[in-house]
Simulated assay, not measured.
Amino acid sequence: MSVTAAAGFEASGVVAGLKSSGAPDVALVVNRGRSTAAAAVFTSNRAKANPVLWSQQVIADGRVDAVVLNSGGANCFTGAFGFQTTHSTAETVAAALGVSATDVLVCSTGLIGVGDQTFRDKVLSGSTAAADALSVDGGLDAATAIMTTDTKPKQAVVSGDGWVVGGMAKGAGMLAPGLATMLVVLTTDADVDASGLDSALREATRVTFDRLDSDGCMSTNDTVVLLASAESGVAPPAGDFAAAVTALCADLAEQLQADAEGASHDIRIEIVGAASDDDAVEVGRSIARNNLFKAAVFGNDPNWGRVLAAIGTTSAEFDPYDVDVTINGVRVCHAGAPDRPSDDVDLTPRAVHVLVDLKTGPVEATILTNDLTHDYVHENSAYSS
């Protein structure tokens, strides 16, 4: 299960010294296929890191030969020097591979404000080393090198009819809609042009990564890129390809949720009976961002009143006294009033399912989140120390 599962791709992950732990911290994914079609989506945060600013220009023509990624420093709010570091990184990779720097996507993750000469030197030397280490078996190394506070690498593969989609992701904190704090590289050997890739990727991220809301905090570096080599020689129907990309993104999004910093519960908030998609998503996100509700789940307290209170802050169409709330299979609220006793709800398992029926229409949506724990507060209070 790796970013090199699709034919035509090589990857690597090396130690450049960016992390004090000595763990791998520079990764490279290269498309060696007959096609270099690509698509990408980025953070919607107005405060964008230098690699995002660079990569938005690179992807404009729908072609990408390589993606270089570093952990150990976000290269964000590092001024003109930081943007030049990104440009130099692309040039270093391009020289090693014999391609154009304007076809090299650059991604960074780590602490904001890190980007001095030492950082640049390590990223550039690591990029050269990563190019030398490329292998069709290098997917796991690459997935490991992009980790920051992640506890495990995240990889997934979905097989089509004679073609494959594979990918890797990183992310554990600052997970909120707008792509969450993630770097994701997806690859396929299907024969799909840049327009088809863009359509499939945007639909997939809309219902997966953009519906992962761990802590309501949006990052500056989020990037999700999809590369196609066409090495399978198969041009799948657009619907089949989009479904595979969505399934792959859903798998990776759930892995990100499961690795959220300090979380002890994975919460799936399912909204049904909504009048519109916007209503369903708004209600789900409101619950996912409600710290009182998330703290209650951490304490194994099925406090459904906090769910209704969160819903009430939205502009969605619903009658507060006609809403049902079910937690882990127990309907604790019916028509805005108590139903079965809260003591009937078992919140000791890690998986928590919250079902909210708005009873205003046929639309459904699911938002993924997690509980608010002591460990999350501690880890993020000491992140830069």
Rank of each mutant, 00 (worst) to 15 (best):
V3Q: 02
V3R: 00
T4R: 03
T4G: 05
V14C: 07
V15Q: 09
A16P: 01
G17F: 07
S21L: 11
P24Y: 06
V26Q: 06
R32T: 14
R32K: 14
K48I: 10
L53W: 09
G62T: 15
A74W: 00
A80W: 14
G82S: 09
T86A: 15
S88L: 13
T89P: 06
E91V: 12
L97K: 02
S100W: 10
C107A: 14
C107G: 15
G110D: 01
G110C: 02
I112A: 05
V114T: 11
G115W: 03
G115N: 05
Q117A: 15
Q117K: 15
L124W: 02
S125P: 13
A129Q: 11
D132H: 14
D137C: 09
G139I: 00
D141C: 14
D141P: 09
T148K: 00
D150N: 06
K152D: 15
Q155F: 08
V157C: 07
D161Q: 13
V164H: 09
G171S: 07
G173S: 08
G178K: 04
T187Q: 12
A194E: 01
L197R: 02
D198V: 08
D198L: 11
S199P: 05
R206P: 08
S219L: 06
D222A: 10
S229T: 07
S229E: 06
S229R: 06
A230Q: 08
E231R: 09
E231C: 10
V234H: 03
P237V: 06
G239R: 14
D240Y: 01
A244P: 01
T246R: 04
T246P: 12
T246W: 04
L252W: 02
A253G: 12
Q257R: 05
R268N: 13
A275E: 11
A280E: 07
E282V: 10
A296P: 09
A296C: 12
V297K: 03
V297T: 09
N303C: 08
L308R: 05
G312S: 12
A316T: 03
A316M: 02
D319A: 08
D322I: 06
T326V: 12
A335R: 15
A337S: 15
S342M: 11
S342P: 07
L358A: 00
T366W: 01
E379R: 10
N380R: 03
Y383R: 04
Y383T: 03
